[in-house]
């Protein structure tokens, strides 16, 4: 496998490219939301409570039960979701990759202890954990970040550890040591750079997972606080008025579903591109 042919295979995969395009568009919408939307996210229009889409007035997605512009609020939700996704991938990258690489490389007792810690964190009752935190720390976006961050890197750590264990057997690692490389150097220069394939693929699984978790917590009312919003909050509100104002559920729901699908297509495409055997 070479990096070049892998990229070429990825570029020829229509599903993966569609996923990439959708994600690009959502990113643009999230970044330029404030300029695209005709109204502020917290501006209340008393004459338009739960009104359907009205292009002429700039309410492209209609308004919510409080008379606020749903288009602006959906794009604000996109910002939160992408922020959560970015934070999750950074945490997975920094903590997950380092932790997994160290455990796998050092092996033996240190590895055993490090992986038992991962097992314990894994088995914590997650929602209970979140509820406790919201009670003691308060309901906020940072609570969400902390709780998602506490567990999101575990998968990455496991994957990276497994990969490192098998990389460690490769002779070029032994050769690097024979040329005087220190453990630190070997991990940074020879192990981690050789992990990029599986790391990128699992990042593409981790990000939608984090986005979905945030939406779920917000849907339960444990997440983002008013007047800020997220897709989970919007979907929660929309679900309550599903019959009378279906657009309140439809638009944020469609954005969430599209985003998750796009990540999945891209992840599948990357995996195929890197493993030509399939």
């Amino acid at each position: 496998m070479t990096a070049d042919s892998g990229w070429r295979r990825l570029l020829r995969n229509p599903m993966a490219m569609a996923g990439l395009t959708v994600l690009g568009l959502i990113l643009l919408l999230a970044l330029f939301g404030p300029f695209l939307a005709a109204h502020e996210i917290d501006e209340v229009f008393w004459d338009r409570i739960g009104a359907p889409p009205d292009f002429a007035a700039g309410f492209y997605f209609g308004t919510d039960a409080n008379g606020r512009d749903l288009f602006a609020r959906t794009l604000a939700g996109a910002r939160v979701s992408l922020l959560v996704g970015t934070a999750a991938s950074l945490i997975s990258l920094v903590i997950g990759v380092t932790y997994g690489a160290i455990a796998g490389y050092l092996g033996g007792r240190i590895d055993a202890v490090m992986m038992r810690i991962v097992d314990i964190l894994y088995s914590l009752p997650f929602v209970f954990f979140v509820i406790l935190l919201t009670v003691y720390v308060g309901r906020s976006l940072s609570t969400i970040f902390i709780t998602i961050g506490a567990v999101i890197w575990l998968d990455m750590a496991r994957i990276v550890r497994g990969q490192t264990l098998s990389l460690k057997q490769r002779e070029f690692i032994e050769a690097a040591r024979a040329f005087g490389a220190t453990d630190r150097r070997i991990i940074l220069r020879h192990i981690i750079p050789n992990l990029w394939g599986p790391v990128i693929i699992s990042m593409l699984l981790v990000i939608p997972d984090a986005i979905l978790t945030e939406s779920f917590l917000s849907f339960l009312g444990l997440g983002v606080q008013e007047p800020n919003t997220s897709w989970g909050v919007l979907i929660g509100d929309g679900a309550q008025n599903m019959m009378e104002t279906p657009w309140m559920l439809l638009f944020p729901g469609a954005f969430l579903a599209l985003t998750l699908l796009a990540f999945n297509f891209l992840g599948d495409g990357l995996r195929d591109a890197m493993d030509p055997k399939e």
Partner: peptide, 27 residues
């Protein structure tokens, strides 16, 4: 180990049997 690392590769070096596997494929 630290002092051994300082000797390896510079004062004494090892050539492996199989050059296919002794080089890092990504560098």
């Amino acid at each position: 180990p630290g002092e051994m690392n300082r000797l390896r590769g510079i004062r004494l070096a090892l050539v492996f049997q199989d050059p296919m596997t002794a080089l890092n494929p990504y560098l």
